[in-house]
């Protein structure tokens, strides 16, 4: 049966039509489950390699900073975690939006599984930022615009998780939580631009700014390696979580019964 499906989509010739066909197949829970299962080991090993390289580069190879000494090494987890907390939120809201408008089951699954991972990144950002703030600024916490808006991001994630799990009916839960996620998107540009819009204790951007990054290359490379490692890690764990969620949601279909009893 799978053969026939593949044959059907092999007919279109243009790239756009092929892409459409791919997305259509991706929306099928079974195809998603199988493809994700194949991707997970690759992404997982990629994460391990990148993490090893990034940690070696950041903790050993990179020189100390001229102002902050070795304390700046927190940057290699703080900044990737912060970037990812924003990225994951945008992805979650985007998937939620697709689920709301087109009622695609996989989109709801992706939105739901983004939340706990994103929340953990936001939490990591706040913890490491706090531990960086104490020795450098002289305080664990201040209520400036950057720190407060990142804290609100964590609350948005937690609110999303609570709302999603409080509603029994899956469709209603997905709809309500997607609305919450979409409302919360306003916070994303606020976090990003807070350091430009208002006077904050938090410093301005280092990497993405006019005139290029103001960080020396042997510090930038480990930072980018760690960022890539975080990104791959996120996608690995997203797929693992999404597969479980697909199994649960499709529990009554024949292929799931086959899959769970075959092992």
């Amino acid at each position: 049966m799978k053969r026939v499906q593949r044959g059907e989509v092999a007919i279109p010739t243009s790239i756009t039509r092929r892409l459409w066909a791919f997305f259509h197949r991706l929306a099928s829970p079974r195809y998603f489950y199988e493809l994700a299962g194949k991707l997970v080991p690759w992404l997982g090993w990629g994460t391990v390699l990148l993490l090893a390289a990034g940690l070696y580069g950041g903790l050993w190879f990179a020189p100390a900073d001229y102002q902050q000494g070795d304390a700046y090494r927190i940057i290699f987890i703080h900044v990737p975690a912060a970037w990812m907390s924003l990225f994951v939120y945008v992805l979650m809201a985007g998937a939620g939006f697709i689920g709301l408008v087109w009622r695609i089951k996989i989109a709801d699954v992706v939105a739901k599984t983004c939340a706990p991972i994103g929340a953990s990144f936001a939490f990591l950002t706040l913890c490491t930022g706090s531990l960086w703030g104490k020795p450098m600024w002289g305080t664990y916490w201040v209520w400036d615009a950057r720190l407060t808006s990142e804290l609100i991001l964590l609350f948005l994630y937690l609110g999303y998780i609570a709302l999603e799990s409080a509603i029994e009916d899956r469709r209603t839960a997905a709809r309500a939580s997607s609305v919450l996620a979409l409302v919360g998107v306003v916070n994303i540009p606020i976090i990003h631009y807070s350091v430009d819009w208002w006077h904050t204790l938090h410093q301005g951007p280092t990497v993405f700014k006019l005139g290029g990054p103001s960080i020396s290359l042997d510090m930038l490379v480990p930072l980018l390696l760690m960022t890539l490692a975080f990104k791959l890690f996120f996608f690995t764990m997203l797929l693992v979580r999404a597969r479980t969620e697909v199994l649960e949601r499709e529990a009554n279909s024949a292929w799931v019964r086959e899959t769970v009893t075959s092992q």
Binding site: M136, L201, T206, I215, S216, M219
Partner: peptide
């Protein structure tokens, strides 16, 4: 409280 800039470089470069 100290505010630090967003520049990172080794002491030799500085």
């Amino acid at each position: 409280l100290a505010k630090h800039d967003s520049t990172y470089m080794p002491p030799e470069v500085a």
